[in-house]
Design a binder for these strands. Structure first.
Lengths: 340, 340
DNA sequence: TTACACAGTTCAATCGATTGAATAAATACA
DNA sequence: TGTATTTATTCAATCGATTGAACTGTGTAA
């Protein structure tokens, strides 16, 4: 089998040197129009495929960016992925992708490998428990001065660029909505992981409770994984309490969907007998039964903003670390109503 | 700023040649244990990062595989992504990822780019309308003899390896379940795209109707996008018919969720007043309101099978084209019941 | 003592594209 | 006619890792 054609193959065919071919294929004006066309024609006929290894070796840039997410089973993160992919495609960058499964070792390995591949930048949703050391320690010296943008989750004590949602505001909007509807007995179903989002949202919930003069007891705060199962299982426990909550606030839409499913089975009417809120406002929130009151995290803006930020850094632009906080929007639907 | 250390940097530091370093870092026994350890130690201290461009140029293999999916907003496909990612991670292969958005031009560009990057294999869910030409034509000569596995969707007249779900069987299982429950008036909400899955499932539906002696009219077959909106919008139209269906079979869980949402708003009780089925059995199907009767497509098996197939091809194993059809499983839940 | 095997290391060519400098050819200007 | 200028192309070094062949020096067999 004939091996892949190279610049040399084309050069021989056309009767010029590899330099001319190299320049011509990149449409460099130093090569005359006529020659350029002959060369490009020959390249097409021979089925030439650009060799990025060779180019990358010489130029030191592979034209790829790396994206590492922690949880693909959550549509919230795949929304990010979609938005960023579109952004990078537009910039003609390929994407190296990793699904870290909330596992630090997978994340660490990916960071090493993407460096080996000469990725020019990294967008990261750090796995739960990621510390400053993991991104800035001696094992990852190559990340010094490396374009890196954190999204969705923050990592304490670092000065990386980051684009995150305003979780404190999101919870406040939901709480105020419920409080004004007359609710006074709240339950918080929080994320169990060691992430900034889990902390910030719960913290904001506690602040709101305090500000409203409501006590936060062990009956009002619960932790678990971001799964349908968790929400489903919790409803029963909440209803079994001597004074059940009238409003259940969930860390994520996913958990809320689990709660709604359990409500359906128990014959409890969300929005009438009890109010349920999510967080993220993923596409499915508008089509749950009933439709879910939530807070829209602007994955489009965050993804776009992060991509653009990364591309600027990759282009060598110098500016102080950016910490962009995107405000979310309250979306009221049928799963919440006046306190019974 | 000091530039990245290379083999030469290490060689100078230790007092050997680059050859020795190259061999030592790959643990080649030709280098003595003592020297190897000194070299590996120095590499670690210097923060050496392997340069895959250089290695790939010399060796002609970059250690990456490419994966191209058509629709990330559908959790069904992200399930695939997760399973394959795990498989390739295990094999120490990086993944180049593309979201084709059902757009042929994006798919085509990705196929070119992954070749430029020296990806050693490709897993593809072809976008709707993909033809033999797109994968086997003159523009993609490099795909000749290139390891390529199609999943989920098939492309006619090609002899690529492929791993797909048994769509015909899936529909039959659902139909029989409904027929035995007494249903005789069916509606099919089908995928609108030009894909093998859309065709096979609808075709199977028509076969079942025929076999049962039921007429297929323009009132019983409808096409639309695989979205919640489509399912939601269709329910109203179906209910407005002179003889509404008692069973609605949906091309995908996504469409079925839309139907369930509309049922909820219209006060129609799925599983009692009407029966609704999905297809795919994504995680959320067990937690919809009510839980959805569906057919479990084994994304785990398909993903794993496809990855292993690709890795075998990449390892150079020779065998005739494989066409693996994975049987799905019927999962009966509350959204279906006896005909009213 | 000579020949030989062998372990450990080095030599040098190689992969394919890029690019600053050099050259050749054509044109303009004095 | 000679010199400067522009245009088109080539030259040659370079990026960093790999690898078959060549080279040392030591130990073993003849």
């Amino acid at each position: 089998m004939a091996s892949r054609p190279t610049l040399k193959t084309i050069a021989d065919q056309v009767g010029v040197t590899v330099s001319a071919v190299s320049l011509a294929l990149r449409n460099d004006l130093r090569i005359s129009q006529a020659t350029r066309e002959r060369i490009q024609q020959a390249a097409k006929e021979l089925g030439y495929v650009y060799n990025r290894h060779a180019a990358g070796l010489r130029r030191g840039d592979s034209g790829t960016v790396a994206v590492c997410l922690n949880d693909l089973s959550n549509p919230f993160f795949t929304e990010f992925l979609g938005h960023m992919e579109a952004c990078f495609r537009e910039a003609d960058r390929m994407m190296l992708f990793c699904h870290a499964h909330e596992t630090p070792s997978i994340q660490a390995r990916f960071i090493r490998q993407m460096a080996e591949h000469g990725a020019a930048g990294l967008i990261l949703v750090p796995v739960a428990g990621t510390t400053r050391e993991d991104l800035d320690g001696p094992q990852v010296r190559h990340l010094q001065d490396f374009p890196l943008v954190l999204i969705s989750r923050d990592v304490a004590d670092t000065s990386f660029d980051r684009v995150i949602n305003d979780d404190v505001l999101g919870i406040r909007l939901l709480f105020e909505h419920l409080y004004e509807a007359g609710h006074r007995r709240f339950a918080w179903l929080g994320g169990g992981g060691d992430t900034s989002t889990a902390r910030d949202r719960e913290c904001s919930f506690r602040q709101q409770m305090d500000a409203a003069g409501l006590p936060v007891t062990s009956d009002s705060v619960h932790h678990g994984p971001t799964t349908l199962e968790f929400g489903d299982a919790m409803l029963k426990r909440l209803l079994a309490m001597p004074e059940p909550p009238t409003a259940i606030m969930c860390f994520s839409d996913i958990i809320a969907f689990g709660v709604l499913a359990a409500c359906y089975r128990h014959g409890v009417r969300p929005g009438v007998d009890i109010s349920v809120t999510g967080f993220d406002d993923m596409a499915a929130a508008a089509y749950s039964a009933p439709a879910l009151t939530s807070v829209r995290v602007r994955t489009d803006l965050i993804g776009q903003c992060a991509s653009e930020l990364l591309l600027s850094r990759m282009a060598g632009e110098q500016f102080p670390p950016v910490r962009k906080v995107i405000p979310p929007e309250l979306v009221v639907r049928a799963s919440t109503g006046p306190a019974a």
